[in-house]
């Protein structure tokens, strides 16, 4: 999976540079997040602006990151969802689990 990472204070912004998040590539995201948690970086913002399609495996990877961040007293928040990706969170009711922000600034300011 193509990812770009930036850091601001103790918050890591992971930008997914893929059109699809599915069973083929979502394992890579899980691994990347676990590596960050091992380094003590537990406050993450996942930028999904490039993602046009997400399936249950992609959602599962994000849930995994959310649970791991929470267990380490951190947080995982989402920003910049395309409408059809947002609809997947509503279909699965995961919009009630995640904090979802319209843009990166709002997500950063929420920490």
């Amino acid at each position: 999976m193509q990812l770009k990472m930036t850091e601001q204070d103790d918050i890591v912004n992971l930008i997914i540079e893929e059109e699809r998040m599915d069973a083929h590539n979502s394992g890579d995201l899980k691994e990347q997040m676990l590596q960050l948690f091992d380094e003590g970086k537990c406050n993450l913002i996942i930028d999904l602006s490039a993602v046009r399609f997400i399936d249950s495996s992609g959602l599962g990877a994000l849930v995994s990151g959310f649970k791991n961040a929470s267990a380490r007293e951190g947080n995982l928040k989402l920003c910049c969802l395309q409408p059809q990706v947002r609809s997947m969170f509503e279909l699965t009711r995961l919009h009630r689990v995640f904090e979802i922000y319209v843009n990166l600034d709002e997500a950063l300011n929420s920490f």
Partner: peptide
């Protein structure tokens, strides 16, 4: 569970 990692594919 609402925060389960898997089990959503067939339900979708």
């Amino acid at each position: 569970k609402s925060n389960a990692e898997g089990g959503r594919g067939i339900q979708i």
